[in-house]
Amino acid sequence: MKVMRRSVLATVATGLFVGLVALSSAAEAQQPQGGVLSDVLKRGTIRIATIGGNPPYSSLGTDGKPVGYDIDVANMLAEQLKVKAEFIVVDVPGRITALQTKRADVTFANFTANVERSKVIAFTDPYVVVGSIYMVKKDSPLQSVEQLNDPKYKIGFARGGTAEGISATTAPRAQKVRFDTVGDAYLAMQSGQVDSHLQDSLQNASYMAKDGDKYRNLPGNWSYEEISIGLPAGDFDWWRVLNIFVKNFNASGDNARLFKKHFGYELPPIQQKY
């Protein structure tokens, strides 16, 4: 019976702990607002959060260092600030955490600016504009998103991203299968584990350029998303510097050049005709 008492004890104690925590709220001293810009310059390195396994935005080089479009853009920023670039690989929801906890100074991570996220972090002007596309295998019976909206079909996407909301409005009845990374979701569709991968339209174009004979898209573009540099909220000076960088980067043709290099086709217009 000794063991029994122990078990009951653990249960009761957990219950007590629940009560305690539910009653009290954890108070913590407010974080002093240090300027990221001065920190970066003083440190001599800029800490950049990026997501791994998200080609061609970012993926892993054979030497274990990240490579890709987002990486090149970030390196360009570091170069202009005359500091060293240090990359931190995070997952999709980890982008927000990294900025909130000031573990990263910026994110270059295929990161869509939206109001919900802007409540906790900040964004610059966009450097790329993307949509969302449902990709299926070439031999799939699916022809339209209306058809996909059926509980017998599975849609795969990366958790913590914008695909969650888009799939909920465009195909509410289909099964949703959430993966840790975009790469996982893509590979799940490739191997037939899900029927469709809801993905970024630019990524989609580069997948199609590479493996166009294996896949096709369901008609329709289901979102308008401004991919921007993410930064911690409440730091005007840092935002000012990054925004000037983005504007010059877009205007100078550097963006068009890097985009072509990684995606294999011309950069679509960043200004949307509403």
Partner: peptide, 27 residues
């Protein structure tokens, strides 16, 4: 949860991702 099966941990991660109330979801 890593292969998208709907269960308790998947619930936690989704609730955390969407509300940013990670600590509560974990708890």
């Amino acid at each position: 949860s890593v292969i998208g099966v709907e269960e308790v941990t998947t619930w936690m991660r989704r609730a955390g991702d969407e509300t940013f109330r990670y600590m509560e979801a974990f708890f």
